[in-house]
Nucleic acid binder design. Sequence first.
DNA 1: ATATGGCCCTGGTTGC
DNA 2: TGCAACCAGGGCCATA
Length: 329
Amino acid sequence: MGWGFRQMFNAIRCADCVRCRRAFPTRYNQPVPELPEVETVARSVDERVRGDQILDVWFSSHTQPFKTPPEVLASGLLGRVFLAVHRSGKHIVCELGPVQAALRNNPTFLTKARKNSPPIEPQNPVPEAQWIVHLGMTGRLLVADPATPAPPHTHARLTLSSGKELRFVDPRRFGRLDYKDLRLSEAFLTPGSEPLAIAPKAFAALFRNRRLPIKAALLNQSLLAGVGNIYADESLFRAGIRPRRIAGRLSRAELESLRHALQQVLRRAIRLGGSSVSDYVNAAGEPGFFQMEHCVYQRTGLPCRRCGATIRRIAIAGRSSHYCPHCQR
DNA sequence: ATATGGCCCTGGTTGC
DNA sequence: TGCAACCAGGGCCATA
């Protein structure tokens, strides 16, 4: 009893953790990538690889991360230039230009050209292909020095003309790598609406006549793209709505308050992530969302920050849901 | 058509 | 103390 080995170990690790300064050792595992995290990663990667040409590729022998087979990925990516990287739902979409053999033979060309901003314009700026990365639960997209040993669970390494290396690392292998040749198929598009852009009327229409809990509806990516467990719980708290409420029975006012809360939470999280975006990929993938103060998520048994009531945890559609029984009705 | 639940995965944590 | 069981959840698929 008392001060066991385990508690001591945790305490040491926590005291050493300058970044999070949390009292609870369980808090500093990597957050599950949702819309704000994916947005942050996409912006960061865009900043670092725009204009870079893919000179070489390497893929792990695991099958799960590859929605598109590695051979197809390899032949599709080689020689192409990153035109832009952006987010669509929880997906990171890399827009790729046509294969440029000349640049392939002259790797230093791009490096020099990039120093004179704005970034160089490829001959044909119209994307010809897309590399689509889904981070799953534990996936990370890192820009690294090729000399740095690749961490365990690295599934993809792209050698870039600027001398950097783009790496996809994913221990749990829930992430997916996909590829679209835009000459053969339509551009990638998430079926769900963009939560940050959706208007009140369209938002309300998503849930009309739906007979499932609002929490389950928020997690449905074909309705809203990018909302995961954390921000679903947090936005329901801010809107004062219990997660088990049937989506189709919410009033117009409740839905509008939910939309507002959701957008507020997502924007704030993007701001917080963005504040540390500059060192995101260099700092061993340490993301910047520790500042985000959760009101209910993973606060089971703790007092509500607003009213002091005890936060409860229930399961909805196989996912844990956290709520305040007093603030949420 | 629409909603639900099992499954895939590993690492951190808990229980014995 | 050390090992095994458990839990976390995004997306996909089978089932009701």
